[in-house]
């Protein structure tokens, strides 16, 4: 569904991503793992059009989106839940969710209502805090709001950038449960994680990225068992 070929991104003289190729098929959970500065976030930002690409092509559902503007890419059905959540702090929870629907102009009022109900079912705590401002939520709730906001545009693929960052282990488990639920609801998921063992255990396929290159790829379980991966990311 999403195909990235020979993508390179430079920040000034520094090459953050070098010739990365990867593919995400419909209905899969694909994870990109790697240490700090490996180029995972940059890859996602390049897909969303937030950073200029030095070379490479990105196609989504057969359409070349390499040179599209960020807002048009979102309207193609690609949702990007950014690192650090980036919810709108002085908008209420409800308004944050409504902001999510802007990315899909084909949604009509009854559909928006349905999506809202679905999301409140998935994230019951958001319903309780509907009228509270986004900035007053706890970290875990903000992450849930960020994911729910992304789901409000009813995307075909949802890209999650480190959803477990800075959260308590029990909430991290909750988030990973949610990711499985989202996939089971028919969405494709591209997941970036530093928590490699968690990510690989739920992923269908994974890519290991190091200093801007894909060094390994394979099925989630296989990577989890791979001695190199174990040594580098899972502590032996």
């Amino acid at each position: 569904m999403l195909k990235i070929q020979n993508l390179s991104v430079n920040y000034g003289y520094i090459a953050a991503v070098k010739n990365i190729s990867l593919e995400v098929n419909e209905g899969e959970i694909v994870t990109l793992i790697g240490g700090n500065g490996a180029g995972k976030t940059t890859t996602l930002m390049a897909i969303s059009g937030l950073v200029p690409k030095a070379s490479g092509t990105i196609t989504f559902k057969g359409v070349n989106i390499t040179k599209m503007s960020p807002d048009k890419i979102v309207k193609m059905g690609i949702c990007h839940v950014p690192e650090g959540r980036r919810i709108f702090p002085s908008l209420t929870v409800y308004e944050n969710l409504m902001a999510g629907t802007i990315g899909n102009p084909s949604l009509k009022k009854p559909q928006i209502k349905q999506l809202l109900e679905k999301n409140y079912e998935l994230f019951p705590r958001l319903r309780e805090r509907m009228k509270q401002s986004g900035g007053s939520l706890s970290g875990g709730e903000q992450q849930m709001l960020a994911i729910a906001r992304g789901l409000m545009m009813d995307p075909d693929i949802i890209m999650l950038d480190e959803p477990s960052l800075g959260l308590a282990p029990i909430i991290v488990e909750e988030i990973f449960d949610l990711i499985l639920k989202i996939r089971n609801a028919g969405k494709t998921v591209l997941l970036i994680e530093q928590n490699a063992s968690m990510a690989l255990s739920i992923a269908d396929r994974g890519y290991v990225i190091e200093t801007g290159n894909v060094v390994l790829e394979g099925k989630g379980r296989e990577l989890l068992a791979n001695p190199d991966v174990r040594k580098a990311y899972l502590g032996g």
Partner: peptide, 12 residues
């Protein structure tokens, strides 16, 4: 409030 996040919401 957040221009980057607004882009990701599909806002021009």
């Amino acid at each position: 409030q957040d221009k980057k996040a607004a882009y990701l919401m599909g806002i021009n």
